[in-house]
Amino acid sequence: MTEKIAKCGVFAAIAIVISSLERLIPLQAVVPLPGIKLGLSNCVILFVLIQFGFLSALSVLLIKCTVTSVLFSGISSLVFSLSGGFLALCGMYLLLQFKKLFSVYGISVCGAALHNIGQVAAAAVMLGSIYIFEYLPVMLFISIITGMITGGISDIIGRRLKGYRG
């Protein structure tokens, strides 16, 4: 148990570092939409989810979202990243129950799409308007691409760490 807590701490730290490095990639300059990013730290969350289970992944997600929003983007963005991240985590957990049907690519794409849906829904509540769902189709297209990228990375990580058991 203690070992698991320590390992989750390490993975939370990795997730924080990755998402802060990710901020250096100017994706918003190419696609000017609020909240567009690669979501590389989702690889970490997915890995923890596969290795340690739902609760550990949830705790890593909570730590990562809180720390990154305090450090970089302000508390208001915490609502967006948490609602998106939580929805994505639930969806990925559900898909993981059917390992025969879905590979890590599908799970990752689904996570990315749900992350965007959660974010847009949170923004709609915050702004008190449904018009913001206008952004959703574009964000879904992009989430397929970013989901495949993070899925590919997760696939590589999974193969390299095949013998690893948390």
Partner: peptide, 12 residues
């Protein structure tokens, strides 16, 4: 890729 992945992408 597995069948389920293609279904997810198609649905999105």
């Amino acid at each position: 890729l597995k069948y389920g992945d293609l279904i997810i992408i198609a649905v999105i």
